[in-house]
């Protein structure tokens, strides 16, 4: 959790680095859990917790890669389309007779990496803003995915693939959650302890300074987009495996939900500030919110409104706390 700046003083325990503004997501999460626990009986039931863990794991995957891109001050709008594209390809692949989970995972990672590579290449060599580059691929990947499945839902049956998401390697926890947590650990390691991670933060801070420090920007940027593509593709695998099918609307909420999680957690869209620890909290908040509202029986439309309001409020508060951070 390297929060306010690029430095992660190992000499000090991480708790001491927390500032009042950083506690906000934790307080919001606690309040939400308390609220739903009191208002919806089924909220804390083991069955619902199991479902929530799976939902959170999938959202976490998408948001992790997206966080890397956002920390650079860029954005990847195509994550939802990559989910659709991956699910489409993998359901076709399974129906062609490829049912070995390992092989499927390999295919999924390749699809995600390739999609991310396309994003990164357009962004860096095309010299267009990432918003434009991925707005284009958002449409392109979605169209490609829909073409692969012919615009219909495609069902597949491969027990090995299905258990990837809803199986329980650890009893009581969906595999999706385990995969999400493993990815969290990996991405946290990368952002906090590697050269690549430090470059990502630095690019978000001031790209020109990074370039003049003799750092090859293109490679870092492309790698971040590849990572975002891969985590989105893995999320696509888990969603498809949960459903045993892929359909045209797959991944349609992924972009907004992951962005919401990132912003609510307190990572600045302008880059340089935040981190995957914050994204983890944001994912929990969004998951609890969505699930809790469902458990309370709140209508879909009202839910969307509430989600929107929460995102804007969170953004207002994080902006305010960031102002306190930079100005001395």
């Amino acid at each position: 959790m390297s929060e306010q700046s690029l430095s992660l003083p190992s000499a000090r325990p991480w708790l001491q680095q927390l500032r009042p503004g950083d506690l906000l997501p934790i307080a919001v999460l606690a309040a939400l859990i308390l609220f739903f626990a009191l208002r919806a009986e089924s909220f804390l039931s083991p069955a619902n917790l199991l479902i929530m863990s799976g939902q959170a794991g999938i959202l976490l995957l998408v948001a992790l890669g997206a966080t890397l891109v956002i920390l650079m001050g860029s954005i990847d709008l195509s994550v939802g389309s990559i989910i659709l594209l991956t699910a489409a390809i993998l359901s076709r692949a399974v129906n062609y007779g490829i049912s070995d989970p390992a092989l499927i995972i390999l295919v999924v990672i390749l699809v995600g990496a390739l999609a991310g590579l396309v994003n990164g290449l357009i962004f860096t060599f095309g010299k267009v803003p990432s918003f434009i580059a991925t707005l284009g691929t958002l449409s392109f990947f979605a169209g490609l995915g829909l073409t692969v499945i012919g615009g219909r839902s495609i069902y597949f049956d491969a027990p090995g693939v299905l258990s990837l998401s809803i199986g329980q390697w650890i009893p009581g926890v969906q595999n999706s959650a385990v995969i999400g947590l493993i990815a969290l650990a990996l991405v946290a390691l990368v952002t906090n302890r590697t050269r690549f991670g430090l470059y990502i933060y630095a690019i978000g801070g001031n790209e020109r300074v990074v370039r003049l420090s003799g750092i090859g920007l293109r490679r870092v940027k492309i790698l971040a987009f590849v990572a975002s593509g891969v985590t989105a593709a893995l999320a696509g695998l888990l969603i498809a495996s949960q459903l045993g099918s892929s359909g045209p609307s797959l991944g349609s909420t992924a972009l907004l939900d992951s962005l919401a999680a990132i912003v609510v957690g307190g990572t600045a869209l302008s880059g340089g500030v935040g981190g995957v620890g914050r994204t983890f909290l944001g994912v929990l908040i969004i998951t609890v919110l969505v699930n809790g509202l469902n458990q309370m029986g709140v209508q879909d439309f009202a839910q969307t409104m509430i989600k929107g309001a929460v995102i804007v409020l969170a953004a207002i508060f994080t902006m305010a706390s960031q102002r306190g951070l930079t100005i001395k």
Partner: peptide
């Protein structure tokens, strides 16, 4: 052009040297 003003002193200091002095060959800080 010279410094990332929102970043810490040490973060700025190490930036050009992460390529060799302050990272392992595998890229760990």
């Amino acid at each position: 052009e010279g410094l990332i003003t929102s970043a810490s002193l040490v973060a700025n200091f190490q930036l050009p040297s992460l390529r060799d002095l302050f990272a392992t060959r595998l890229g760990f800080w």
